[in-house]
């Protein structure tokens, strides 16, 4: 029940009342030009036993020619007494495999142009998904559009650990394809259901009979929870009714991007 969604519903409903609101492409609109900024995305997962660090630069907003890759950076990942220098496997992509332990604090340091950017991320233990079920999607709107066809949505169940504060990100796949729009950034914290068995209905994701559904329950730390929350806002906010800002990074000094060490549990089902 996010605010912008309510605003959206209100505006949509008001539109016919507003009779003839009109839309027009603004040919002369130009956005401010900014110097390309460096972006670091570091992901380290116990699921794939791998670390990937993507280093790139920002591009023009309306007419991006290319997102240039940053080569020649020094990338070092440290945890406990271990220090790994992550090699560049292709332009701007730095990767390494390793049996990364869970419940461990990782430190990523990227050095480029004599500036070092450092971020820490704690990789929690994965939280197991107990089960998954499907039910008929109740909105009649779809029935009207596709008469006779039934649409399904899924609910999954897991037990939140009591001792720890947990932060989750949920990814949904349909027939091996990830839902990856801006509104598909789903994160939550256990503040309201700490230590309880919890069920989550993936509202808005519709499936048909014999679709394969996969849910990933990704355990992340608080800094990355904040990052995804602010990332979602930065992507969905239009700037018309709110003041968007860049997502809150865990890198010091501040830079675009983040470093996320996470663990995953997943479950799959075929809609009967």
């Amino acid at each position: 029940m996010r605010n912008y969604k309510i605003l959206h519903i209100i505006i949509i409903t008001l539109l016919p009342f507003l009779l003839s609101n009109c839309e027009e492409v603004m040919e002369d609109f130009s956005v401010q030009k900014s110097d390309p900024q460096m972006v670091i995305e570091g992901i380290c997962s116990s699921k794939n036993d791998s670390v990937y660090v993507y280093i790139s630069k920002t591009a023009d907003y309306l007419h991006p020619i290319e997102y240039s890759q940053v080569s020649g950076a020094e990338v070092v990942l440290e945890f406990g007494d271990t220090s790994i220098t992550v090699p560049e496997i292709q332009a701007g992509v730095y990767a390494e495999t390793y049996d990364f332990p869970e419940e461990t604090l990782y430190t990523l340091t990227v050095t480029y142009d004599n500036i070092s950017y450092t971020a820490e991320s704690f990789m929690p233990k994965p939280v197991a998904i107990d089960s998954i079920s499907s039910s008929v999607f109740p909105y009649s709107v779809y029935m009207a559009t596709y008469p006779g066809e039934l649409f399904y949505e899924v609910t999954f169940y897991f037990k939140d650990p009591f001792e720890t504060q947990n932060f989750y990100r949920i990814k949904t796949y349909k027939n091996d394809t990830l839902f990856n729009g801006s509104s598909d950034i789903v994160v939550m914290k256990d503040k309201m259901f700490n230590g309880k068995a919890y069920q989550l209905l993936m509202r808005g994701y519709t499936f048909e009979v014999s679709d394969t559904v996969m849910i990933e329950l990704i355990s992340i730390d608080e800094a990355n929870y904040t990052y995804y929350l602010t990332l979602e806002e930065a992507m969905t906010s239009t700037g018309n009714f709110s003041v968007p800002d860049n997502p809150i990074t865990n890198f010091t000094p501040r830079i675009l991007g983040h470093f996320n060490a996470f663990s995953v549990d997943s479950i799959q089902m075929i809609i009967p």
């Binding site: 401010q32 907003y61 700037g239 003041v243 860049n246």
Partner: peptide, 23 residues
């Protein structure tokens, strides 16, 4: 506030913002 650039992260196009209320 409007974006003045963008970048790719998590497989998505993400807006880059500079000045608050700069437009």
């Amino acid at each position: 506030t409007m974006p003045s650039g963008k970048y790719i992260l998590d497989g998505k196009r993400v807006n880059y913002y500079t000045d608050r209320n700069g437009y």
